[in-house]
Design a protein around this nucleic acid. Structure first.
Lengths: 197, 197
DNA sequence: CTTAGTTGTTATTCACTGATAACTAGGTTT
DNA sequence: AAACCTAGTTATCAGTGAATAACAACTAAG
């Protein structure tokens, strides 16, 4: 049996992880702080005490997810510092469903000024990281992120990734477009990133 | 002074339009049926009576937005049936901010089975429409939609489009990548689609 | 041992929201 | 004009959820 009392820092980390999991399902407005609290096994008021407000908790979750995404990209670049490699890393991200989901919910909640600001920071960091790691030019990076956003959205719709819905013809068509993607070599990226189920 | 009483069909249309506007800001869970009702100038219970539930109201809003998007694409294809033309049409969609915003909120809310199903239908229709209108192959269409999703997300974050935030360097960099986009001719698309302010 | 800081809880409040019920009023048909 | 349908309202409810306050219990230093 592990100790039950944690330091505030440890509990904060654990809560941020739980927040990613919880907010990934129903987003900022659709998830209660009590959902997060129960997932972490603490009381709801304590969550508020540690983070100050639901808003700051959500921002912590977005930043937590973004940090993990950056980590996955960094690891991929260590294997091979190009867009192909980062594209393959997207498989990992699709497997860890919550990361991209919570980021998408962050985009959607960006009308809130504080959330929008935080989300822009995260996205900007990821954009610059991709460029730095791969040396890709702006257009290549833009295309890379475009495919990434499409995959993120398709995962949210349960068209690709684990937990995908039975595929309609158009879904299979898109999924296949990720297999036979880039015969042309100047477009970096993302071959097998759409394996569903 | 126009007549105050409308037929249920007329009121339904008007409410769907108001719902697009309202849900575009704060999404499914973050918007109350009363917000929609006030925007349309009717009482909240009447909204529920006409649509049965908030869920069905939201689905109506998503379908309304998707229909308008299809309309814009069809108009663009009539001018010139290729991806470049549809890419330019994205400027129009970015101008009508709510359309893409409500669709994004639909993606995000897709964990709800009924909403997910409706949203997939809408997305599938748009995908097939783009292919039919332009004759693009699956990879070209995928890339086109990828850029589209990126623009949608950037608009939600207020990085591009009307109401954009003061640009950081990385934002300008991405915005410019849409100007000098495709010197290579086989990638269809979307030149000036990121004019901010 | 006791004082104090930190980790946590329970109890409570107060605003909000989706949905239902019951009623009102405008228009149309017979 | 009377019956009836359709468009709309007000009143209300039951549930939820973020945030506050006050209290409890663990741990450690003096």
């Amino acid at each position: 049996m592990a100790r039950t009392r944690l330091t505030a820092a440890e509990r904060g980390e654990q809560l941020a992880a739980a927040a990613v999991q919880a907010f990934a399902v129903s987003g900022y407005a659709g998830t209660s702080t009590d959902d997060v609290a129960r997932l972490a096994g603490v009381s709801q008021p304590y969550v508020i005490r540690l983070f100050g407000s639901k808003q700051r908790l959500f921002i912590a979750a977005v930043e937590h997810a973004a940090a993990r995404i950056e980590q996955v990209f960094r690891d991929a670049a260590e294997r091979s510092p190009d867009l192909e490699s980062l594209g393959e890393a997207y498989d990992e991200l699709l497997a860890e469903r919550d990361l991209l989901a919570v980021l998408l919910h962050g985009f959607a909640a960006s009308a809130d000024p504080a959330i929008g600001s935080a989300v822009r920071d995260c996205f900007g960091r990821i954009y610059r990281l991709v460029r730095e790691l791969t040396g890709a030019d702006t257009v290549e990076t833009r295309d890379f992120l475009g495919i990434g956003m499409l995959l993120t959205v398709l995962a949210a719709m349960q068209v690709v990734g684990p937990g995908a819905v039975p595929p309609e013809p158009w879904m299979s068509e898109i999924a296949e477009s990720f297999q036979d993607a880039c015969a042309e070599p100047e477009t970096g990226g993302q071959r097998g990133a759409a394996n569903r189920s």
